[in-house]
């Protein structure tokens, strides 16, 4: 089990190490100034007013939901890809049917204008 996943583990460790190096370097090398004006978003601009956490419009949520639904489609493509050579033409047709059904949903989204911004 371990031998099979060693490259993935290596990749994980590499990613963590690189991220640590990058943020660590800025901590150690960079100069830090703790001043009142430095902590404001715009040092020499408009005075900040109100909370930075504005409610996000529902259309972002809409995109997120549609993303999840197509993401679940991908999860089905993944095992299919693993054995698609053994499934042959039959498996291909199966997957085409699956994708075409979801494609109807995609066309519907386009026609309905659900992805239009305003």
């Amino acid at each position: 089990m371990f031998e099979v996943f060693f490259p993935i583990l290596f990749l994980f460790v590499l990613a963590v190490v690189i991220a640590l190096i990058m943020s660590g370097l800025s901590v150690f090398i960079g100069k830090r100034t703790k001043l009142g004006k430095k902590d404001e978003p715009y040092e020499c601009g408009v005075e900040p007013v109100g909370n930075t956490k504005e409610p996000v419009p529902v259309k972002f949520y809409m995109v997120a939901i549609l993303f999840i639904l197509f993401d679940i489609e991908v999860i089905f493509l993944f095992p299919w890809a693993v054995i698609s050579d053994r499934l042959g033409m039959f498996g291909f047709i199966e997957m085409v049917v699956f994708v075409v059904i979801l494609l109807v949903g995609y066309f519907y989204i386009l026609k309905r204008g659900a992805l239009e911004w305003d």
């Binding site: 639904l69 489609e73 089905f76 299919w80 979801l102 309905r112 659900a114």
Partner: peptide, 28 residues
């Protein structure tokens, strides 16, 4: 999934489709 459970597999895509339609109807 692709032999015995072929029919449920295709049904899943219809379920996803209804969820897409539902999300658009409710949120858009």
């Amino acid at each position: 999934l692709f032999t015995t459970y072929l029919y449920p597999f295709e049904l899943t895509s219809i379920l996803l489709l209804t969820a897409i339609v539902g999300a658009v109807v409710i949120a858009r």
